[in-house]
C-alpha cells in the first residue's frame, strides 16, 4: 500500500490535494461531465443542429458567431464547431481507450513477470524499465515513426496513430508494473500467500485471484483512469505535430492545428486592452485612436479556438479527477481517510 501511495503522489498535480474527500456535489459534477464526454462520443446520429450530421459540411459564414443553428459558431473553413467537437470526442475516446487497454495489459503482465518470477525474465524486464526511464515518451513515439515506415515501406495516413497510441500504452506501462511489483513483493511475505502455496494452488490461480483481483485491482483502476487523461493529451499532441490523423478524420488536435492562426490575434486584443485601460486611467493619449485600434483588433478576434482547448484540457482534467476519486475511495477503504 505504501508503494502505491508513493506513486499516487504524481496525481496530486492539479487542484486541491487529495486529502480533501470528494463531496457529493463534486462527485455528481464529475459524473455529469463524464456522461457528457462519453455521451457526446456516442452521438453521431442526433439532429444536425446539435452536433450530429456531417462534420465536413460547409455553411455560409466564416468564423460565424453563436446562433441556434451553430451553438458554438463556425470555424474558418465554415464548418460547425460543435459537430467537429462531438466527432473529435469520438476519436479521442477511441484512441485513449485503446492505449489504456494496452497499458493495463502490458503493465500487469510486466509487473507480475518482474515481481513473481525470478531469474532472467525479471532481470530483462527490470533492465528494460531502466532504459525506458531515460527517454521521454514523446521522443520514443517520434522515433518509432521511423520503425513504422520501415515495416510498411512508407507512412500510412491515419492508421499510424493507432500504432502510436498502442505504443504509448506500452511505453508508459513501467509505472504500473513497478507498483504491481512492489505490491507483489510485499504480499510474498504474507501468510495467506504462503498458505495458498502450501495448499498446492496453481501459480495462475494465486496470481489471478489472490494477487491481482483481490489486491491490485484498486491500483489498476486508478492508473487506468490516470493514463486515459494522459492519452487524450498525447493523441492531441501527436496530431498537432502532424504525425496523427489527417483531413477526413476529425480530431481535437487537428482542430487546434487548423485554428492556430485564429488564435494569434488574441494577444493583440489583450495588449490593446491593457493599453486602453492604462491610458484611460492616466488620461494621457487620445482615447479615440486607441479605442479604434482596439476595435480593429476585436474584429480579428475569434473565440472559436477556445472550445477545442477547453474540451481537451477539460477531458484530461476529468480523468485526472476520476483517478483522484478512485484513489480517495481506495484510501477510505483502507481506513486511512
Amino acid at each position: 500500500m505504501k508503494l502505491a501511495l508513493k506513486g499516487m503522489r504524481t496525481l496530486e498535480m492539479g487542484g486541491v490535494s487529495s486529502a480533501i474527500k470528494h463531496s457529493g456535489v463534486r462527485r455528481s459534477v464529475l459524473a455529469i461531465c463524464l456522461g457528457l464526454f462519453i455521451g457526446s462520443a456516442l452521438l453521431s446520429t442526433i439532429p444536425e443542429a446539435w452536433g450530429g450530421g456531417n462534420p465536413h459540411h460547409r455553411y455560409n459564414e466564416r468564423w460565424g458567431s453563436i446562433s441556434f443553428a451553430h451553438p458554438l459558431g463556425t470555424d474558418m473553413n465554415r464548418k460547425d464547431v460543435l459537430t467537429q467537437l462531438v466527432f473529435g470526442a469520438q476519436t479521442s475516446l477511441l484512441m485513449s481507450t485503446l492505449s489504456t487497454f494496452v497499458f493495463l495489459l502490458a503493465g500487469t503482465v510486466l509487473g507480475v513477470l518482474s515481481g513473481y518470477c525470478s531469474g532472467w525474465p525479471r532481470n530483462v524486464v527490470l533492465a528494460v524499465f531502466q532504459v525506458l526511464q531515460i527517454f521521454p515518451i514523446l521522443l520514443l513515439l517520434l522515433l518509432s515513426m521511423i520503425f513504422i515506415e520501415m515495416f510498411f515501406l512508407g507512412r500510412m495516413t491515419n492508421w499510424n496513430l493507432v500504432i502510436l497510441m498502442a505504443l504509448f500504452g506500452v511505453f508508459s506501462a513501467p509505472k504500473l508494473a513497478e507498483m504491481i511489483r512492489g505490491k507483489i513483493l510485499a504480499l510474498k511475505e504474507r501468510t495467506f500467500i504462503e498458505a495458498a502455496v502450501a495448499l498446492g494452488l496453481s501459480h495462475r490461480r494465486i496470481i489471478g485471484k489472490h494477487i491481482i483481483r483481490s489486491e491490485c485491482l484498486p491500483i489498476i483502476l486508478v492508473q487506468g483512469a490516470y493514463i486515459m487523461g494522459q492519452a487524450i493529451m498525447v493523441e492531441t499532441t501527436l496530431t498537432f505535430l502532424k504525425l496523427g490523423v489527417e483531413y477526413p478524420v476529425v480530431s481535437w488536435g487537428l482542430m487546434l492545428r487548423k485554428m492556430q492562426d485564429g488564435m494569434i490575434s488574441w494577444g493583440m486584443v489583450i495588449q490593446q486592452g491593457f493599453r486602453y485601460s492604462w491610458c484611460w486611467l492616466r488620461q494621457t493619449e487620445d482615447l479615440n485612436i486607441i479605442a479604434r485600434d482596439w476595435n480593429m483588433g476585436l474584429a480579428d478576434f475569434h473565440f472559436q479556438p477556445l472550445f477545442p482547448i477547453m474540451s481537451i484540457a477539460g477531458s484530461a482534467w476529468l480523468f485526472l479527477e476520476l483517478a483522484r476519486y478512485f484513489n480517495d475511495r481506495l484510501r477510505l477503504q483502507d481506513g486511512r481517510g
Partner: peptide
C-alpha cells in the same frame, strides 16, 4: 502552493498554445 498545483494541472500543449495566442509567434 495551491497556485503551483493548480497551474501544473494544465498540459504543456495547452499552456504553450495559450502563450502563442497571447504573445504571438
Amino acid at each position: 502552493f495551491y497556485l503551483v498545483n493548480f497551474l501544473s494541472g494544465f498540459h504543456i500543449v495547452i499552456l504553450s498554445l495559450l502563450f502563442v495566442a497571447i504573445f504571438g509567434q
